[in-house]
């Protein structure tokens, strides 16, 4: 069943016709030519297809495009565009410096996940390893982000090359820099 929908992809309105069966990931990759989000498992088990959907990190393989008419999607390709400068996002820069990837296939998903994760932590969201769920102070004060927190929060993004320790180093650097600046 064909549907005409509009997505705002990396800051640009894109009209596209999709089958109701077309996932958001396939709509991006096969209909719109936006191949930055990757298909690793197609079942929500690897994280390679992570995009920022309406501002939050989500898996584009487990949702139908037709359900997202009018929604905003940001991929790793558009992070710089959406920030306005067109350059690399600090997370992306840190990935390059720390060599947070090898084959690069999981990388756009890792990057989008990291950007979403940092926002969640900034908003005070706890994680599975957060010791104190209800610390004194405002509930929306930033959550702690030590290495254990970063690892847990990033665990939805698998990397077979085994770049995990370098990704954590990159995000430690980014988180420290952004919190220092704010």
């Amino acid at each position: 069943m064909e549907h005409r929908i509009t997505l705002r992809v990396d800051g640009t309105e894109r009209a596209v016709t999709v089958d109701s069966r077309t996932t958001l990931l396939d709509a991006l990759r096969e209909r719109l030519g936006v191949t930055s989000p990757k298909k690793g498992c197609d079942h929500g088990q690897c994280g390679a297809c992570t995009v920022l959907l309406e501002g939050r990190r989500q898996l584009s393989c487990l949702t139908f495009a037709v359900a997202h008419d009018g929604d905003q999607v940001v991929t790793a390709e558009g992070l710089g565009e959406v920030r306005g400068d067109g350059g690399l996002h600090p997370v992306q820069q840190a990935f390059i410096e720390q060599d947070g990837f090898q084959c690069g296939y999981c990388t756009p998903g890792q990057v989008c996940s990291a950007v979403g994760m940092l926002d969640e932590a900034e908003a005070g969201h706890p994680s599975h390893v957060t010791r104190d769920l209800a610390p004194p102070g405002a509930p929306d004060s930033p959550a702690p982000l030590d290495d254990g927190e970063i690892r847990e929060r990033m665990s939805g993004n698998l990397c077979r090359c085994g770049a995990y320790v370098n990704i954590v180093a990159a995000l430690r650097e980014t988180a420290t820099a952004s919190r220092g600046a704010s």
């Binding site: 929500g44 939050r56 996940s113 979403g116 939805g156």
Partner: peptide, 9 residues
């Protein structure tokens, strides 16, 4: 449960 991305969905 699951992952950060899945919990957001």
């Amino acid at each position: 449960g699951a992952s950060g991305q899945l919990r957001n969905t």
